[in-house]
Structure formats: structure tokens, C-alpha cells
């Protein structure tokens, strides 16, 4: 059973305290900028109407957060498991050091999406951005899968400057031929093969089903895949003293 909480006028400590004390799934109405919703949470669902504040689902450890609107900065900071669905757009540093779970965003993302994203054994984090992403996409990416679909219609590039700076693991998929994009020296960008796309097929299917999109239409455009050349980019930099 879904319980409804009206967040109108609540401070974040009050709201989050209430969420911690309330068992089961929750329908959250009237959300307006309250931070840290779902921080450290596991194995429950919160449906959020309105706009949650920064650090939505920080350290998330399971369950699902669904936002019917935009979310702000630091969505899924250091999350370990679970799913965050955002029907609107999100701010900066989404999925910072994320190790597992999924962040699916219908709209656009700000700076530094997927920074420090990792992967570990059965944990494979996935971020799919429907629109475009800001600068420093996948900075220091060490693992996981980042996908940007470029379904935005304002004519701006699919990603802003300096994608993949410091990347040393994982994979980045851009639904674009990336002709006008510059990548750093330590990564390789190439057209995605059918095998590459196979890797993200299930995620795309899930994403399209959730947001009512046509998967075959999305796959009809070329994708570029970016991978790092080395897991040890700084090996040769030092001399013992």
C-alpha cells in the first residue's frame, strides 16, 4: 500500500525524519527543494511529485525513487544500488562515485554527470540521460555505463566540453557520430558496433518502456562508444625520491 505524505512547508530534517519513521512505499506530494530525500535508503519506493532538492538518493542502497518533475544537483551521490527515475531534467554531478544501481533521466543533465563512476563485481552502475549532458561528462570515470541519447530538440550539442577527462574505466555511449566532439588523448572513441549496443540493449528497453519511447527509433541513429586506453593512466609520471 502506498502511503501519502504532504511535504508542503516542511524542512528537510523534518521530512526525512518522517520518511525514516514511516514504513513501506510512499507517495510524496508538494515536494519543494527538500534535500537528501531517500539518503541511505534501501528496498522501498518513493514517488515524488514536485522538485526534490540536492543530493536526492545519496548513498542509495536499493529501492526506487521516481520524480515527476526535475531534480537538482548531486542526484544519486555515491549510490550503491537501487533505481532513480527522473521524468524531467537533473542538475550537476549526478551519480558522483556511483557504484551500482541505475539513474534514468528523461530530460537533460548538468555538469560532471557520472564523475568517478565505478564498477565492482556484480555492481554495474548505469546512467541514461535522454537529452543532453553538460561539460565534464564521465570525468574520472572508472567503471559502469553512461549513455546520453541526445533526444533534446534545442539544437545544442549532445555534450558540452571536456567529456571523459581522466577516464580510466567503464564505457560511455553517445547517440551521435561525435564528429564535432573532442576527447582527451587517453581514450578511444569509435562507432558503436552491434555487440557494443547489445551491451546496453536491456537498459534501453527498460528506459524506453518507462518513458514511453520507441526503442527502434532510438537505435536507428549511430552511436559512438568511448573507452579508456588504460586503467593506469598515471603510471609513468613519477620517480622515487
Amino acid at each position: 500500500m502506498m502511503r501519502t505524505i504532504d511535504a508542503t512547508g516542511m524542512e528537510f530534517t523534518e521530512l526525512n525524519g518522517l520518511l525514516r519513521r514511516t514504513e513501506g512505499d510512499i507517495e510524496l506530494q508538494g515536494c519543494l527543494g527538500q534535500r537528501f530525500i531517500g539518503a541511505g535508503m534501501g528496498n522501498r519506493k518513493i514517488r515524488i511529485h514536485g522538485i526534490p532538492g540536492n543530493a536526492l538518493g545519496a548513498y542509495l542502497n536499493g529501492g526506487e525513487l521516481e520524480v515527476f518533475g526535475n531534480a537538482q544537483d548531486a542526484v544519486g551521490d555515491t549510490m550503491n544500488a537501487g533505481t532513480i527515475l527522473v521524468h524531467g531534467s537533473i542538475g550537476d554531478t549526478a551519480g558522483y562515485a556511483m557504484r551500482g544501481g541505475k539513474i534514468y533521466v528523461r530530460g537533460n543533465a548538468g555538469y560532471r554527470t557520472g564523475i568517478h563512476m565505478k564498477a565492482y563485481k556484480e555492481h554495474l552502475p548505469v546512467i541514461i540521460i535522454g537529452g543532453r549532458a553538460g561539460s565534464f561528462l564521465g570525468e574520472y570515470q572508472a567503471g559502469g555505463i553512461l549513455v546520453v541519447l541526445g533526444l533534446h530538440t534545442d539544437g545544442r550539442p549532445i555534450v558540452s566540453n571536456y567529456p571523459c577527462t581522466g577516464m580510466h574505466g567503464g564505457k560511455l555511449f553517445l547517440r551521435s557520430d561525435c564528429r564535432d566532439l573532442r576527447f582527451p588523448k587517453q581514450v578511444t572513441a569509435r562507432p558503436a558496433s552491434p555487440e557494443d549496443l547489445e551491451e546496453i540493449g536491456d537498459y534501453l528497453e527498460e528506459y524506453c518502456a518507462l518513458f514511453g519511447l520507441d526503442r527502434s527509433h532510438i537505435l536507428s541513429s549511430p552511436f559512438t562508444v568511448v573507452t579508456p586506453d588504460s586503467a593506469n593512466p598515471y603510471r609513468q609520471m613519477y620517480v622515487a625520491n
Binding site: A55, D73, A74, R112, Y120, H123, A142, G143, N232, P233
Partner: peptide, 26 residues
């Protein structure tokens, strides 16, 4: 550390989500 074997573990100088006391507060 929850990272793959043999992979460099890079902790950059800044926390890239902290540019101010307000960010630290967060």
C-alpha cells in the same frame, strides 16, 4: 575499495561537488 583489481584508485584533489562552504554543508 570496491573497485576492479589492478585499476588505479584515483582520489583527485578536490571533491568535485564542493566549491564552497555551502557545498561542504551539503
Amino acid at each position: 575499495r570496491m573497485i576492479p583489481e589492478g585499476s588505479d584508485a584515483i582520489s583527485p584533489a578536490p571533491h568535485h561537488d564542493i566549491y564552497s562552504i555551502e557545498d561542504l554543508r551539503q
